[in-house]
Design a protein around this nucleic acid. Structure first.
Lengths: 242, 242
DNA sequence: CGTGGGGTTGACTGAATTCAAGTAGTGTGG
DNA sequence: CCACACTACTTGAATTCAGTCAACCCCACG
């Protein structure tokens, strides 16, 4: 049965900002159901005008876009708590596709209700904007990575970033977290070839900085990795949840 | 003297969505003044928590961030109508710096009033989110460019994109628009070296696809350029103005 | 009239891509 | 039970696109 917002397991994690009772109720009214998709299933298509918006509850996925020449850019990895479909929600068209990498559970919201949602719940509207700003911030970082970091720094950056997010989501135990993506996904996220990504991962493994195999990422010393990645601030600020 | 929102020259351009009288009044109340800065002046600093937000009225500028190793990533070019400081407004910290490339005139808004602004003007709140979504869309495109396009395609993409924006802003006449940046700025935006950017510009010039010298960009056939850049849609959708 | 910023060009170097081959694990069907 | 196909990952060698180094030009400016 669909999870009630009041009982939402994500909401209580300290990474997410607390919500007032009114806000929880507003989310509950905005939520029209729950969707479970299998690994590999498409969720939103680039250029589409989806009638639905989502928040990831369980599982992981990918945002990506294809170019005319067949190359794929992975925009980012989707983890629980991520809001999906903002662009369709306000602009009416997605700039990228979204697909599930593992089996996923998603809260479903009705796109056509978003205007009333904004009107009736200014705190929640502010939270939507806040999430958009966080995404913008992240994309700026990603751009700087692909544009200015070399392969070793890039891979270190990406692994450190997911690991830090994983820590906030309580997915890390004994320096390990699940990371069910393929090397090709990471390569497409960083604008590197699969071969070079593989060799770079091997280098990080040899230097005992990060190990990623069989869908499990293991990082012994996150600060050392962050130093190589030129990440200045390893704290993850709290964020709103939709 | 400060421009009244009612007389805002940008508002009437067809690229910007129309605003109701109430919305114009709300903007006027939100606006605390106007700021004129000289070419080269910093407007916002990466990591800062600015008390002010801006909309560019005249002039052009740059968003950029520096990495620890001294490399600079230009995040995008700022043209009239662009909103500046969203991240500081909602998250309390800018992810990039902003500086004026030419002399600029900026509408100034009070960051601390943003919450009431959201509460009292849901249409305007929606517009802020819309702008954030547009920016997110753009950054996704930029990421795909730096990650997946080669140098020729990248430079073509960047020039075509500004040109299309320039057209919407009535800055183009006889296939020409002002583009007062340095080649280094473009290079830093695309993750290319200055030398290679220069040679790539020469290639586009030789092929009569785009000419950019003395701060003036000239494009004879935008569709041909867009084809090289793998830009699928050369229309620029209307957007809100703050 | 020197100085410095921006732009241009050629020669050399190198990081990352492409090509190629091979391993390991998994699932399928004869 | 084994041959086959398929996917993900791995590794070495050859190639190339883009970076670095180094000059040089032009021009605005003090």
């Amino acid at each position: 049965m669909a999870t009630k917002c009041k009982q939402c397991p994500l909401r209580l994690q300290h990474q997410f900002l607390p919500m007032s009772q009114d806000e929880v109720n507003a989310m509950q009214r905005f939520k029209v159901g729950e969707l479970v998709v299998d690994a590999g299933a498409p969720i939103l298509m680039q250029g589409s005008n989806s009638p639905q918006l989502f928040t990831a509850l369980h599982g992981m996925g990918l945002r990506y876009k294809y170019l005319e020449n067949g190359k794929r850019q992975v925009v980012n990895f989707i983890l629980p708590g991520d809001f999906i479909g903002l662009q369709a929600g306000v602009m009416g068209e997605m700039g990228h596709s979204v697909e599930a990498t593992t089996k996923m559970t998603l809260c479903v919201f009705d796109r056509s209700a978003i205007w009333n949602f904004f009107k009736d719940n200014p705190e929640r509207a502010f939270s939507v904007t806040w999430l958009a700003a966080i995404e913008e911030h992240f994309l700026g970082d990603a751009l700087a990575t692909v544009g200015q970091r070399d392969a070793l720094q890039s891979v270190a950056w990406a692994l450190a970033k997911v690991y830090l997010r994983g820590q906030q989501l309580n997915m890390v135990s004994k320096s390990q977290m699940p990371l069910p993506f393929r090397q090709q996904d990471l390569a497409d996220a960083l604008g590197l070839s699969l071969v070079h990504t593989n060799k770079t991962l091997a280098k990080l493994r040899d230097r005992q900085l990060a190990q990623w195999s069989d869908g499990v990422l293991s990082i012994a010393d996150i600060d050392k990795l962050a130093a190589i990645a030129m990440i200045e601030d390893t704290t993850v600020p709290p964020r709103p949840l939709l």
